[in-house]
Amino acid sequence: MLGLLERARVPPHPDFYRLLFDYVSGVQGVSAGRIGSIMTERDGTAQGRLYDEFIAPYQQTEVIERAIARMVARLDTLDQLIVQSSDAASDHSRSLAEASGHFEAETIDPVILRELVERLTAAHDTVERANRTLLAELADAHRELAATQAEIGRSRESALRDPLTGIANRAGVDLALSRLTHEAPGQPLCVALIDVDHFKTLNDTYGHPVGDQVLLVVTRALLASARASDIVARTGGDEFAVVLAGTTLYQAHNIANGMRNAVAAGDLRRALGGAVLGGLTVSIGVAEYRPGESVAQLLDRADRGLYRAKESGRNRVDSDAA
C-alpha cells in the first residue's frame, strides 16, 4: 500500500490510505476506473485530483471549524456578561439590605437617606445596564447562530455539488441512494452509470479547458433528457451517474437510451469551434436495486454493465438483467 502511495506521489495521509485500501480491495467498484486512471498519470497531480474528487466532497471541516470558533468566542463573551450581571445584582441586593436596616430605625438622618437613595439608584442603574448588555448580546448570539446554521446548510449543499457542472457529485449520489433504499425499500430504483467515450483522447488533443466545455455539453444533454425526479450527477472526470427513483429496469434502460441519443445530438461547436468532431457518444450501464443489497453492490453491477457497453463497441446501453 505504501509503495502504491509513493509511486503516485501521494502522501500516506489516513484519508488517502483508506481510499486506496478500498480501491485495492475492490470496494470502490464504481470509482475504481477513475481512481486507476488518476493513479497512472505521472504528472504529479494525483494527490490533488484524488482529494478533490474522492475526499473533499465528504468534508466540511473548514466551515464547521469557523462556526465552532465563533460560537466559543460568543459563549465566552456571554459568560463574562452573565458574571457581570450577577455581580451587579448581588451589589444591588446588598444595597437594599443595608437600606432596609436604616429605614427600620426610629429616626433617619437626611444626609444618610440621600446617600442611600443615590447608592440604590446607582446600583439599580448598574443592574439595568448589565441586563441590557446581556440581552443585546443574547440577541446577537441568536442572529449569529441562525447565520451559522445557514452557512453550514450552504456548505452541506455545496459539498454535494460538482463545482464544474453544478449538478450533484459522488457524495450526492451516495446520499440519494442511501436515502432511497432506506425510505422506500419496496419501490423500484435504478441507477445508470455513464462514461464519455474516448474522452481522454479528446482531452489530450484539445486540452482541459475544451474538455471541461465538452463535459458541460454532456451535462446539458443529460439534464434535458432526464425527468424532474431523476438525480443527474458527475461522479468524477468524464463519469456521470443518474439515480432513477420509482423506475423499473425496462423503463430505466429506455431513459438511458434517450440520454445516449441526446448526448450524440449535442452541439460541440461552442466547445470546439470549427474543429467539430464526428460526434460525441457515451456508454451507459444500468442496474436495478435488489432488496437487501448494499448501495456499493448496486453500483458495482451498474459499473459492470458500463464495462460491457464499452467492450461491445461503446455508444450503447447495457442493462444488468441477470
Rank of each mutant, 00 (worst) to 15 (best):
D174M: 12
I194P: 03
A192P: 04
F199Q: 10
D197E: 10
L202G: 05
E151T: 14
D162T: 06
G211E: 03
R179I: 12
K200R: 09
E157L: 15
R179D: 15
S178P: 00
A176F: 10
A150N: 02
T181Y: 03
T201E: 14
I194F: 07
T165K: 01
G172E: 00
V196S: 09
D174E: 13
H182V: 13
L180E: 15
L160T: 02
F199W: 09
N203Q: 04
P209K: 06
I167A: 02
D197V: 07
G172R: 05
G166N: 10
G153F: 06
V191Q: 08
T148W: 04
D212M: 05
L202H: 08
N203L: 04
N203I: 06
V196E: 00
R154N: 06
T201H: 15
P188I: 06
N169L: 08
C190Y: 08
V191A: 01
A171E: 13
K200P: 03
H182E: 15
A171F: 12
D174C: 07
D174I: 08
L164D: 03
D162H: 06
R170K: 09
K200W: 02
S178M: 13
T201Y: 12
A184T: 15
L164S: 09
G207K: 02
A192K: 11
N169M: 10
V196Q: 02
H182T: 14
V173A: 03
N169Y: 02
P209T: 07
H208V: 05
I194W: 08
Q187H: 14
E183T: 15
A184D: 13
Q187N: 13
P185D: 11
R179S: 14
S158L: 15
T205V: 11
L164V: 10
D195V: 02
H182C: 12
T201P: 00
G207P: 00
A159V: 04
R154C: 09
G153A: 08
S155Y: 03
G186K: 13
A159N: 09
G153Q: 11
L160R: 09
S155A: 10
S158M: 14
L164A: 08
Q187Y: 12
D195Q: 00
P163R: 07
C190Q: 10
Q187A: 15
Y206V: 11
I167W: 02
P188E: 03
R161C: 02
D204S: 08
A171T: 12
A150F: 10
R179M: 12
E151K: 12
L189A: 06
I152W: 03
Y206D: 11
L177M: 12
E157I: 15
E157W: 12
I167R: 03
A171H: 14
L177R: 11
Q187M: 14
D204H: 05
G207I: 01
R179C: 13
Q149T: 13
T181L: 01
T181A: 01
L164W: 05
A192E: 03
V210D: 06
H198W: 11
I194V: 01
D212E: 00
Y206E: 09
D195H: 04
V210P: 00
